[in-house]
Simulated assay, not measured.
Amino acid sequence: MPFTPAALALRRVSAAGRRRAEGWAASPRAVDVITALSCLSLMVLDVPGLAEADNSLSGLTATLVLAAGAATLLARRRLPWLPYLVALVLLGWLHELTLIQFALYSLGRFRGRTAGVLATVGYVVCAYTLFNLPGWPEHRADTLSEFLSLVVPIGVLASGVGIAAYRQDLVAALEDQRAETAALQAVQDERTSVARDVHDLVGRELTVLAVRAEVLAARARGAAHQKDFDELADTARRAHHMLNETIVHRADERATPGLEGLRALAGESERMGSPVTMDIADQAYRLSPLRQTAVYRVVQECLTNAAKHAPGEPVTVTISLRDGRLRAAARNALPALAPPTAPVSSGTGTFSMRERVESMGGTLTAGARDGMYEVVALLPAGLGR
């Protein structure tokens, strides 16, 4: 994926999703090692009994066999059927029930419901067959009721827990996918908004140019420059037509206001309970209309977020120009207490702001520091071009 603003936005969402999905487990390999060691430590408790049983194993050899069986859990993500088959062998040979629990959990956890159910059925059938053969341990399940109350629940519970974890992973993956889709949609919507603003603002200038060229052509009728003015007017009309063909303009949607619309935004914010202080440099009004709409969008999103997440807190908006750079900043104090009800938010506003600013060669930063939340957008001023 190329390093466009949209791609970078999606990378940020994907990284956040991966961190949430992994949780405390920084390394799946480390989890597998801990799982194998846990299984071995439980099976080692049975070694004295295995050494006494008539199975031709000593305490040392029984430990080595159990260790080899537990080691198969290291492959439980890629080959979950391997520890399962080994567990069935140990079940028939040493009457060991510990490994089968870990194996059934792993199958449900990494292969889902179908594999988990099939493995559980296979385990129950195998265990019941062994139950009916001579040599089953007397104190494990010497009656059918004990078999049904001990051997069967062990497998069903282990597999059920694994399947539940598998479903939870699917839910987390779906949430991540929805977040990526929402981020992509936010970026696409902002690009569409930018395109419409370009259409309205540039189209208006092209119309003025065409009309002005026609007026000059009429005044220069019969003169040497009349043809040049006519060609200029025709070029402006063709450019406007190409703009209409390239960018789909919906007449029912208004163009984004410029800096003149910020006072109205401040009034809306104050009516919602968040007073706004604005400091706008006089030079900012000389910015191009497209840059003014970018500033308007950033301030609009900042005031909306402040009303949602810090209701009642005053907001300071500063728009200044220095060294050929436009700086638009919005600051508000973080609330001492969380809002009584969680705000309704899609979580994509920052992506929209960043897409708008980066599409014009600028940068946007947002974050909390020293009890304040600040959003800063830096853009080339473009004055004098």
Rank of each mutant, 00 (worst) to 15 (best):
S27K: 03
A30W: 02
R196D: 11
L130S: 13
G160M: 14
A53R: 10
T235A: 14
T35A: 07
Y123M: 14
N332E: 12
R19L: 15
A179W: 03
A251Q: 09
S359V: 12
T277P: 04
G384M: 11
M272E: 10
T235K: 05
Q292D: 06
T120K: 11
R297G: 14
R76Q: 13
D370Y: 07
L337K: 12
L79H: 05
G324P: 03
S58T: 15
E270I: 08
A183P: 01
A183H: 03
V156S: 06
L133Y: 05
L232D: 01
T192E: 06
N244C: 12
S145P: 02
S269V: 01
V357S: 10
R325I: 09
M353E: 11
T207D: 13
L130C: 11
L364H: 11
E355Y: 03
V202A: 13
V299N: 02
S320T: 12
L303E: 05
L334Q: 10
D228A: 15
A233M: 08
N332Y: 10
M1S: 09
P2Y: 00
R271L: 07
R109C: 11
E180H: 00
D234I: 00
T246M: 07
R250K: 07
E190S: 15
A51E: 04
A26F: 01
Q185C: 07
Y84W: 15
N305M: 02
H241R: 12
A342I: 07
S288T: 12
P275G: 15
N305A: 05
T63C: 15
R327C: 03
V317K: 09
R78K: 09
T350P: 02
P339D: 04
R369H: 13
L243W: 01
A179Y: 01
A210L: 08
E190P: 08
A26Q: 00
C39M: 04
A172H: 01
A381E: 08
R286V: 04
L107K: 05
V295F: 03
I319R: 02
L60T: 15
T181F: 05
S106K: 02
R29G: 14
T181K: 02
G362V: 09
I154R: 15
W93I: 13
G23Y: 00
G384L: 06
V156H: 00
E214L: 10
D32E: 07
Y285A: 12
